[in-house]
Design a protein around this nucleic acid. Structure first.
Length: 936
DNA sequence: GATCTCACG
DNA sequence: GACGTACGTGAGATCC
């Protein structure tokens, strides 16, 4: 039916939740998920619909109607809507978004506490007609047919996409025909047949056909009941005799009220220009880029507000940033912070490495929009550009007004504040500040919020969690960058030499932004139930990691010097042999030159290609060596030696901290998308062990005088997690029996008794076991095992046949990632997988592997983190004299006084094995030694 | 800064 | 039927 002819101004009343549900479920099998993991299906559908309504229908008045609170129908009939499933979480989370959208469109929201949208719509439609308007009810719900009359019609919105449905008008002309009864009898009709979605009972035994017939014959439900005895059909008659009251109740339940106490405020409902800026921001935030473009094209900015640039450029947030220069001011600030019980803190220093940095100032923010900078060690350069005029004392330089020394009695209240556990500290990367303070002899306590960690919990796949990027995205604010105040490259000056007012603006802004971000991230984490992970795992871990970094690890420098000489000699020898074999000298480290030698000059076959040409990696060299060529073998040896020397033996001694004589790595808590840690400067999580020559390097890591190392590593933690999650019977049984899991696996997939499993069978089973965790396919398994692809395929099939629970579990994770956009670990840590929605097979397959691997790798990370926190707590409480030094994903390394090693081993084992209770036991293996090498 | 290679779990 | 083919990291060397 085409659109009814327009004779009056039109008011469109949109049934809000009907629209939202429809939009959400239209995309249920392929939901829209933003890169931050937000399910945006409903918001998208609603936005697109509103644009369409406004552009194509050009309503004169428009309102969005929502249910609010429990309906009076529940009092009438407690089971009303009781069979409805709870709103899916993803949808519930997008309701606030949709309200923002509606607001940005400047469409009034109409709701009345205690009433359903239907009743508000019924009332307003009536009032609209009285006011000389025409009411268009936008909904697909048949209940609304009862409201149809002159100047009231129904618009059932269509649907785009693959299963497109045309929009549909229902008015006086076609209502009767569509439902089989006239609008005035809709309540009788629905009262008889009931409504399963609202759990309205109706009359059991009477369906649409009978209902229509009865209504045609007798009229309303009361009339029908009055004539029950005359009804010919025995079934219908008996049904009515039994359920007459149910029919009356049902009729009342489906009757839409038209008499609520709401006014029709036509002026408020008149369609207005949308708030373009807000809408554009929302669209970008929701990643509706196409919609944003289309909307911008259809609604060009009026000349009046074009070109002022306010829309495009991020704001500069207004902040009152002040430099403190007197003790009294500091005391007042301390009092204010104590009063508030919470403040943001940030340190300014002269190095990115907290183990080498010197503190030069502190910024503090207590309330949003206000922050202070406390300079302690600023100085200026003299006119001759070299002589330092200022130092730590305020009098030394007239140009700089430092506060009294941080450790002077006047500043004691500030130090007390920092060390007061009851006053909450908010910061960005507080591990850094903690270490800087610690080296000043200040123990920063009360770490309550870290915005960098919070951002990581909310968006673990995000590239960077730096403040500049977070402020830009979340606060639409461009921060002052370090380069802007200190310069860059060669011209960069130490922060201590930055002019004070400039330093203050930079530093205080950081504290202010931190506070604003914390206020935003806190509720977001709560909404996603990530609070436990944040409060009980990641936040306590900040301390633990800081402690480990502070501890550092000792190396045997003469050992590295000797090893470097030996490797260098080996390398020269190999170099000569390589040149001889190649027939010329060239740069072995240059891939292009090596390519030319191997595939050009010597004409060896190209095995594998990279983006830029033939690959020369170890797989290729191995294959070429297997063909009987000598050069590839030499190259592999050369590369191994070169790598060990360049990356480890020569590099590590340069990292020794002159102050402590030890190497202090940095454990990054916000890098790995799965929840793992990473280690940098230097990376101590990839110290060689797999080859004999490489493992020698570990002899150079030694405990402090009078100490030994204790190492403890989880045995097959990832496979145990897989067993736990999948609940696979064979798998779980194997682990519970305490037997060798790879041997057990081999017995099952090769169908032989455990005693007959050969070493080769076990090795293959082990490879398959690990391959499964990563989603390895037949192609790569075949390559790895040196077997045919068909054989590899048979292995994988045999595996899943023996472990059907594993297959089921992996499929489940893929399905979860597809439908809700993310997978999660034991602690609820999420990993969003937008790739799984890709139309590109390759990208999608990657997403599927990530979806199966992330819960396993991530849960393993969860467990060791929990263990680390408990261990460090007990170490701090003095239970053992050990120091935790390193974490290498499933392994922890400790340093402890000689004689305490057995106790420490047991202490650590107990806490690691007790980190969680799974379906299968957790097992920890340990070792003791006077070098890292010996702990194996 | 991008690319390649290779070290670890 | 082809696609391209195992997850997660960091560092050093070379090239452009």
């Amino acid at each position: 039916m085409e659109k009814p002819e327009k004779t009056r101004e039109r008011l469109y009343l949109i049934d809000g939740y009907a629209l939202i549900y429809r939009a959400f479920f239209a995309l249920i099998s392929r939901p829209l998920v933003s890169s931050r993991g937000e399910n945006t299906s409903a918001a998208f559908g609603v936005a697109r619909f509103l644009i369409k309504i406004i552009d194509q229908h050009q309503p004169d008045y428009l309102g969005m109607v929502f249910d609010a609170g429990d309906s009076e129908r529940v009092e009438m009939y407690p089971q009303y809507k009781a069979t409805r499933e709870k709103m899916p979480d993803e949808l519930a989370l997008s309701i606030p978004r949709i309200r923002q959208l509606v607001e940005a469109f400047r469409i009034p929201v109409l709701e009345l506490q205690g009433y359903e949208a239907d009743d508000v719509i019924g009332t307003l439609a009536g009032k609209a007609v009285d006011a000389g308007l025409e009411a268009v009810i936008v909904s697909g719900d048949k209940d609304f047919y009862q409201l149809i009359r002159p100047h009231v019609c129904l618009l059932n919105p269509g649907r785009g996409g693959p299963t497109a449905v045309e929009e549909e008008w229902v008015d006086e002309r076609n209502a009767h025909e569509r439902l089989g009864v006239a609008p005035k009898h809709v309540v009788d009709y629905l009262g008889l047949i009931g409504d399963s979605s609202d759990n309205v009972p109706g009359v059991s035994g009477i369906g649409p056909k009978t209902a229509i017939q009865l209504i045609e014959q007798y009229g309303s439900i009361e009339d029908i009941i009055a004539h029950t005895a005359e009804i010919k059909s025995k079934r219908a008659r008996e049904a009515l005799e039994a359920f007459a009251d149910s029919a009356r109740l049902s009729r009342r339940l489906v009757t839409i009220r038209e008499d609520l106490a709401v006014d029709l405020d036509t002026e408020a409902l008149r369609v207005r220009e949308p708030d373009r800026v807000a809408l554009k921001d929302l669209f970008l935030d929701l990643e509706f880029n196409t919609l944003a473009r289309e909307f911008a094209a259809a609604h060009p900015t009026a000349p009046a507000d074009a070109g002022d640039g306010a829309e495009a450029a991020p704001n500069r947030l207004a902040g009152d940033y002040r430099l403190l220069s007197t003790t009294e001011e500091v005391h007042a600030l301390v009092a204010q912070a104590r009063e508030a019980g919470r403040f943001a803190v940030d340190t300014e220093t002269d190095s990115k490495d907290p183990m080498r940095a010197t503190l030069c100032g502190i910024s503090i923010g207590v309330v949003v929009g206000e922050a202070f900078y406390l300079p302690f060690r600023h100085r200026t350069r003299g006119p001759d550009q070299g002589e330092l005029l200022g130092d730590a004392t305020p009098d030394a330089d007239a140009g700089v007004r430092n506060l009294p020394d941080l450790h002077s009695p006047e500043m004691q209240p500030l130090l007390d504040l920092l060390e007061d556990e009851t006053i909450e500290k908010v910061g960005q990367n507080l591990k850094y500040d903690f270490l800087v303070f610690r080296r000043e002899g200040i123990d920063l306590r009360g770490i309550a919020f870290d915005t960098m960690v919070a951002s990581y919990i909310l968006e673990p796949g995000r590239r960077e969690h730096g403040m500049d990027s977070l402020a830009l995205q979340h606060l639409d604010h461009r921060t002052i960058t370090y380069e802007e105040v200190a310069g860059k490259g060669k011209a960069q000056i130490p922060f201590a030499e930055v002019e004070l007012e400039t330093a203050c603006n930079y530093a205080a802004e950081d504290a202010d932004i931190t506070l604003r971000l914390a206020d935003k991230f806190g509720p977001e984490m709560q909404a996603l139930e990530l609070d436990h992970l944040f409060r009980d795992v990641e936040l306590p871990l900040v301390h633990v990691l800081a402690e480990m970094e502070y501890n550092g690890i000792r190396i045997d420098e003469p050992f590295f010097a000797r090893m470097s000489e030996e490797l260098r000699a080996t390398q020269s020898q190999l170099e000569r042999e390589i040149y001889a074999e190649a027939g010329e000298e060239f740069n072995i480290g240059s891939t292009p030159q090596l390519r030319e030698i191997l595939f050009g000059k010597l004409g060896l076959p190209v095995i594998k290609k990279t983006k830029t040409g033939a690959s020369t990696d170890v797989d290729v060299l191995q294959a070429l060596a297997a063909q009987g060529h000598r050069l590839p073998t030499l190259l592999m040896q050369y590369r191994q030696v070169d790598k060990l020397r360049g990356t480890y033996v020569d590099a590590l001694p340069l990292m020794v901290n002159p102050e402590t004589g030890r190497i202090h790595t940095s454990f990054n808590q916000t890098v790995a998308a799965t929840g793992r840690l990473s280690s940098t400067d230097p990376n101590l999580q990839n110290i060689p062990i797999r080859t004999e020559m490489g493992a020698e390097i570990r002899r150079g890591f030694i405990p402090a005088e009078g100490n030994v190392f204790v190492s403890a590593d989880y045995s097959q933690i990832e496979l145990r997690i897989l067993a736990h999650y999948s609940g696979d019977e064979a798998f779980v049984t194997a682990f519970r029996s305490g037997a060798d899991i790879h041997r057990q696996t081999a017995a099952l997939i090769f169908e032989v008794p455990v005693e007959s499993v050969t070493k080769e069978m076990r090795d293959r089973a082990k490879t398959v076991n690990f391959g499964i965790i990563y989603g390895q396919g037949p192609f790569s398994l075949a390559q790895q095992l040196g077997i045919s692809q068909a054989e590899a395929k048979a292995f994988i099939e045999a595996y899943f046949e023996r472990f059907p629970g594993v297959r089921r579990y992996l499929d489940e994770q893929i399905e979860l990632a597809r439908t809700r956009g993310y997978v999660e670990t034991l602690t609820g840590r999420r990993r969003y997988i937008p790739e799984i929605q890709s139309r590109n097979w390759n990208v999608r397959a990657f997403g599927e592997r990530a979806a199966t691997n992330a819960p396993i790798q991530g849960s393993s990370a969860d467990l060791i983190k929990i263990a680390m926190i408990r261990i460090q707590n007990d170490i701090a409480a003095g239970m053992v004299p050990a120091k935790m030094l390193l974490q290498v994903h499933d392994e922890l390394l400790f340093e402890t006084p000689i004689g305490t090693e057995d106790a420490v081993r047991e202490f650590v084992r107990e806490r690691m094995e007790g980190a969680a209770t799974l379906n299968v036991p957790l097992k920890v293996a340990g070792g003791v030694g006077s070098s890292w090498f010996e702990t194996k």
